[in-house]
């Protein structure tokens, strides 16, 4: 009994350390890889607790390995946007201008009930009132009501110094026009941590250092 108690304390400390090592991101909404790690850790941690035959060291090794891999993976995801897309997926628009996209719903295996539940949780009871509903990579649904804005939701055009060509094109930027816009503020693409823009010409530019720039679009 006492051995089990000591083992429990050791594993408790290690699991707490592991969760802390993963960071605060873990404690909020879970990304797919984080969900997998959380399930695996909770299963692996019980093995040396239930079976005194298993040395604590062999129980601790997979826990720490999994958490370290997750931390390294999250760092790689931050560094390489293409990897982020592969591992976490990308947000999908299920309602655009009050029109539900059944193809996206089918692709996400999202039922009408799921959608209605998500909308109701955002205090929206009529899909016709929704300008945009976007299923985020963690499975939550972001809703933009029709009356809050007449335009499209802003797109991320530059993320951590990397231009996202599809989003830039959607917001009406060519390579040159984007460079010219940034030059007005003495910035290169590499100096920008985050830039969002919408089709009305509005933009938000957060440089790596210094104050953010807010550009008002037409009708804003």
């Amino acid at each position: 009994m006492s051995v089990l108690m000591i083992r429990s304390v050791i594993l408790y400390i290690i699991v707490i350390f592991a969760v802390r090592l993963m960071g605060k991101r873990q404690l909020g909404e879970l990304q797919p890889s984080e969900l997998v790690i959380t399930i695996l850790i909770s299963n692996v941690a019980t093995l040396p607790l239930e079976d005194p035959d298993i040395p604590v060291l062999t129980g601790v090794t997979p826990i720490l390995s999994l958490v370290c891999f997750e931390v390294l993976m999250s760092w790689l995801i931050l560094r390489f946007p293409w990897l982020r897309k592969k591992v976490s997926g990308s947000p999908r628009t299920v309602i655009s201008g009050g029109r539900i996209d059944p193809d996206v719903m089918r692709e996400l295996r999202f039922s009408v009930d799921d959608l209605m539940t998500a909308l109701r949780s955002k205090d929206v009871f009529d899909p016709g009132e929704v300008q945009y509903a976007i299923v985020e990579t963690n499975g939550s649904v972001s809703v933009m009501p029709k009356d809050s804005s007449s335009g499209d939701p802003p797109e991320v055009v530059i993320s951590d110094g990397e231009v996202i060509p599809a989003a830039a094109e959607k917001c009406g930027f060519s390579g040159d026009s984007l460079r010219r816009l940034l030059m007005r503020f003495s910035l290169g693409t590499g100096d920008v941590f985050l830039m969002t823009a919408d089709s009305s010409g509005g933009a938000y530019i957060a440089p790596r250092r210094g104050e953010p720039v807010i550009i008002k679009g037409e009708g804003q």
Binding site: L21, G23, L64, S65, C68, L72, W75
Partner: peptide, 17 residues
């Protein structure tokens, strides 16, 4: 810091293994 700690732990685990 987390990256450094993770790499250090992985190295220790690899050497121990």
């Amino acid at each position: 810091t987390r990256i450094r700690v993770s790499i250090m732990i992985l190295c220790i685990l690899a050497v121990t293994a």
